[in-house]
Amino acid sequence: MKSLSNLQQAFCDLLRTSDPPPRDLMDELLDDGTALERFNVYRNNFIVLNGDALADMYPTVKRLIGDEAFRSLANLYVRKHPPATRTLLLYGDRFPSFLESIPELSRLPYLPDVARLEFGWTCAYHASDAKVLARDEVASISAETFTRFGLEPHPSMHCIDSDYPLFSIWAANQEDGSEETISLDSGPSRIVIVRPGMEVETREVGEGTFVFLQRLQTGDSIEDAFNLALQTDSAFDLAVFFSHHLFDGTFCALRAC
């Protein structure tokens, strides 16, 4: 007689294979003559329903490669990386690197980046709410001392960059029947995902904006972040950026550095 934990482990391991269950495991289960059938139904549901959750997380990847290929990949992924938490809200965090490891997908080198974007989108969707940076909070500080402060981005913010025209690829697949042809050689793309209110915004930004936000996110002061952004992209215009985004929910607080 196996211990309960051994039995459970053997059962879980079997869910991740295509092998028929061994006789001795079946004998441990309630024997009403249908144990094998019922095991197969359970295993099938485990693979298919977790694959459905993955498809909900990655609708653009699914659309890019088609339902059949996505299902094959999902079956493999669920076996390799079964859910590790009780909820499936953020299931599939390792899918981008999994896609990278599939040799058959090497001619679609942008696919892992699309997956990163979709995962970031859903993380932003479920991120904590935060208040919008208040004008009063900023107005209470003398303008000369701003450089010593940092800006706290909204907790939903994700910065994703790609060597490929990621934003165009993603945007063309958000609507039905887009016939747009995209050239993979049309350059890199930098995307900032943020959810200031209830709706997730996916913004394509310039290199300077991208560096500025990334640095602020890692805790840099406004001055350090701005200097780095300017070094990367001499066209970065802080006044234009702040006029659009200082009070639109991109940031939630000032932070003393």
């Binding site: 659309r63 290929a69 058959e104 001619r107 679609l108 060597d163 697949n173 747009e180 042809t181």
Partner: peptide, 15 residues
């Protein structure tokens, strides 16, 4: 892996 999707609309790829 039979890839049949909108990825056909993404062309080129010197990268």
């Amino acid at each position: 892996l039979v890839v049949k999707g909108t990825c056909e609309k993404i062309v080129g790829g010197s990268l």
